[in-house]
Design a protein around this nucleic acid. Structure first.
Lengths: 199, 199
DNA sequence: TTAGAAGATCTAACGTCGTTAGAAACGAGG
DNA sequence: CCTCGTTTCTAACGACGTTAGATCTTCTAA
């Protein structure tokens, strides 16, 4: 068994630890604490080793973002799978989105930080957006609602959730209220789409 | 005439020029280019002068944010005043919000940058939020719609606009489409609120 | 008219950041 | 044992926000 495979294994292990530690620092101390030197110290290396695994800080942050969407997507799927009612399914997934934003504020903010390349962010979000599109399609089918454009409808809901979830970070609003608001907003939108021919 | 008043005038003038130049750099070259040294160079001073007028960079950025909301509020009022129809008034103001976000992308992103103190940002936004609340109140009165909670409704619309406007910064969506989406979203929400007793 | 106070501005530096070059240490193979 | 490739470290670069202290200007008052 060539020792090069063990080398590769160790390399991968270190890479994983970097991501793990970076996520931990981000979530517990916020974006300002997430520095290369801090991450290196946390995995008991010096700063330059990080660059052996990531081209630059942005690449590392993008990995955290991807991880964030993986988490969010998993939770959303869990909710979607356990709720049989089509309407409540959408509402509960919406609420879950906002709950996630409240439970992982710094990670969520990183996932939507305009300093990070927009296209890369969107790519990371795409699978979750796709799930939403799926939910909306089955919803409109179930009610015989003909949406003018499914993609438009999906973007509207995605944007709405994002905006309302962001409100939760204000002290005057808070995560709980944001969850309620998201549910109300989606309730109103879906009702509106049923009310007419979804335009 | 004491010369101290001229001193004060010159001081104020320099302060204004700093804000002016900072805004220009932000809008034309983005947040990454907005550094204290850059601003100082632009007004033909050295960096420390800036600190004679602003406690720190955040304070300066907050002033830019406040200016941004002033602009946005003025435009929104203009639209609101010239549109007699209650429904179209809300929709057009919504579209204007998103248009503003598309016309001043970097400024708009600064206005919602989570790195800036959330409460201060909210305070800067408050007058614009108040206008929105006003619009929604006259809208619900005009249609005899009893909203469960006007403040909730306002936050929902505010959050929705913010989220959909942010979508416009993705290449795959763009400002034009975001404007349409915002109008559609608000159309659906308002229709939903009319459809039932606004809960 | 000039001494000194008050204010404006500059130079120089500190500590931190992301990032890179090059030296040193380490491991495996001949 | 010695060499080679890899891993890791030290040291540094340039840029950032920010501050201390010196210098230079301008006004006031004797």
């Amino acid at each position: 068994m060539p020792s090069s495979t063990r080398r590769a294994r160790e390399r991968a292990r270190t890479r994983d630890r970097i991501v793990e530690v970076a996520l931990h620092v981000l979530e517990t101390e916020g974006a300002a604490a997430l520095t290369i030197r801090r991450i290196a110290a946390e995995v008991e290396y010096t700063a330059p080793v990080v660059y052996q695994h990531f081209a630059n800080k942005d690449a590392l942050v993008l990995e955290l973002i991807a991880h964030g969407y993986d988490l969010m997507l998993a939770q959303a799927r869990r909710i979607a799978d356990e709720e049989p009612d089509v309407d409540r399914r959408v509402l509960r997934v919406a609420r879950e989105y906002v709950r996630f934003a409240g439970e992982h504020p710094s990670l969520y903010q990183a996932m939507n930080d305009s300093a990070v390349d927009a296209d890369a962010r969107r790519r990371a979000a795409q699978p979750t957006v796709d799930l939403l599109l799926e939910l909306l399609t089955t919803w409109s089918d179930a009610h015989g609602v003909v949406l003018a454009d499914h993609a438009d409808a999906c973007e509207i809901v995605w944007g709405t959730l994002y905006g309302i979830a962001s409100l939760g970070h204000f002290d005057t609003i808070g995560g709980q209220r944001a969850q309620r608001l998201a549910e109300q907003a989606l309730g109103a939108i879906l009702l509106g789409w049923r009310g007419q021919g979804g335009g």
